[in-house]
Design a protein around this nucleic acid. Structure first.
Length: 430
RNA sequence: GUGAGAGUAGCUCAGCUGGUUAGAGCACCGGAUUGUGGAUCCGGGGGUCGGGGGUUCGAAUCCCCUCUUUCACCCCA
């Protein structure tokens, strides 16, 4: 019976696997450059860990199961709760700031579509214990540093940044009540994603008062931090919140990534736990969903039973990123081949064990060596060496039987020399 | 969860309004070629036409169900 692969999953054949590794190696490299250290947690956790943060709605998008001891568990749909749990458990022992990253494999039971699968990898970078926009800036830097390193320029991608704190203060100043905030956020988050008329309609549903509504609409039309000064005028809370945002942009400037970053008051982010800076990274040309999203979440550790410690970070998934890199031609050619330094061919059956022995000896000294499973027909073996993209080829024939010499062939040049095998080992080791 | 399109060899696809044994290119394997590779030529293996049911003398083709996939909506931690 043929068993198909499961909906929304991918098979990583060697050529595809090399792309996955390319992406993940890049992520890890960028993390390490900014001195983040790697952690990981279990692939499943208690179901309630995800429910308490995100509500029951989210539970339907989880892969949940009950184990034999009756525990309700779920495969992790994100790693932030695990991070919060791990950090809380050792909060007193961990030196601050905590700068951690991870590349977890995550599962969400959503309907697959472009840039979204049921199983994927997500780069997570977080700084815990720093209540300063410099930390927000550093996580953004880390993301941009990766994107830049992989070849995406500021005309390919843009970081759109806003602040929940600033937005909250401004909205309250304009007459929005505390308990209305989350509903208004949800509407504002849609602003750039739906047509203007549709936006006005749902905004009208969320804010009944026409005067307040027009002021909010005016606020949302703001295109720069400077324009916000008008709204903040005279209100100290607003001025403070704005200062923080200005400070953030000044950090980004110092970090040399200002050209990638722009203020966008429409960036709100779906869920409630963000408390300060929020940002999303988009590709500027096509209309893919966000490549990356993150922000400050100062209450999360406390929500998970720990002390109140500030935190900020982001997640970047592999699916949208891979589509973008593919579109831009920034993925390496996927061959699915290894990197053979030396292919050992032999011309007659008596020499086969010798060829295996030589290959094994090369391998033992750190050289990637391959041998032929068949003796004879040299043309065929060279063909195989070519197909494997071997850099060089050792040929065992008469001269080896007579006085221990082999032909060493450079596969790119086509040139070859006769050399004593012992001499060859010496050369290869140096 | 809702809606729409698609599914023929490992991949990209052809296959007319239903009609013999379902084809091509690429890939793979073998041979030409038992001491010189990437080329060329020749040959070969591979398919219950996604699966199940129905209509029909006859189904890859028409109908229904289901699975997968693509795209959009919901959601997006």
């Amino acid at each position: 019976m043929k068993i198909p692969s499961v909906k929304g999953t991918r098979d990583f054949y060697p050529d595809v696997m090399s792309v996955r590794n390319f992406i993940i190696d890049g992520w890890k490299g960028a993390s390490v450059r900014s001195n983040f250290v790697e952690y990981d947690g279990p692939i499943f956790e208690y179901l309630t860990m995800y429910q308490q943060k995100s509500g029951d709605e989210i539970a339907s998008q989880l892969f949940a199961f009950t184990d034999r001891g009756g525990r309700d568990l779920a495969i992790r749909p994100e790693i932030t709760p695990t991070l919060a749990r791990m950090v809380n458990q050792r909060i007193n022992a961990l030196p601050k700031p905590i700068k951690w990253f991870s590349v977890p494999r995550l599962c969400r039971a959503e309907r697959p579509q472009k840039g979204r699968l049921r199983e994927f990898f997500q780069w997570n970078v977080d700084i815990i214990g720093v209540d300063d926009v410099l930390a927000d800036a550093e996580t953004i830097f880390c993301a941009v540093d990766y994107l830049r390193q992989v070849g995406l320029t500021s005309s390919d991608v843009a970081v759109r940044i806003s602040s929940r704190k600033m937005l909250a203060v401004m909205l309250k100043t304009l007459g929005i009540a505390d308990e209305q905030l989350n509903a208004v956020y949800a509407v504002l988050d849609k602003r750039s994603k739906i047509p203007a008329e549709a936006f006005e309609k749902i905004l009208a549903e969320a804010i009944a008062d026409e005067v307040v509504r027009s002021k909010v609409a005016e606020l949302m039309a703001v295109e720069s931090v400077e324009q916000l000064d008008l709204f903040a005028a005279g209100n100290q809370k607003c001025i403070d919140a704005l200062d923080e945002l200005k400070q953030l942009f000044s950090c980004l400037e110092s970090m040399g990534i200002a050209d990638y970053c722009k203020f966008d008051i429409g960036i709100v982010r779906g869920l409630a736990y963000y408390t300060g800076v929020v940002f999303e990274i988009y590709d500027t040309s096509s209309s893919l969903r966000a490549i990356c999203g993150g922000g400050r979440y100062d209450n999360l550790l406390a929500d998970f039973g720990g002390p109140k410690i500030s935190a900020t970070g982001f997640g970047m998934g592999d699916c949208v990123l891979a589509i973008l890199l593919e579109e831009k031609g920034l993925l390496p050619k996927a061959s699915g081949l290894g990197t053979v330094d030396c292919y050992v061919a032999c011309l007659d059956e008596e020499l086969r064990q010798k060829s295996v022995k030589i290959a094994a000896k090369l391998r033992a000294s750190g050289i990637c060596a391959e041998f032929s499973y068949k003796s004879g027909n040299l043309g065929k073996q060279l063909k195989q060496a070519s197909a494997l993209n071997a850099k060089s080829c050792i040929i065992l024939g008469q001269e080896f039987k007579q006085d221990g010499k082999v032909v060493l062939k450079d596969m790119a040049e086509g040139s070859q020399q006769i050399i004593a095998i012992e001499e060859l080992f010496k050369q290869m080791q140096s």
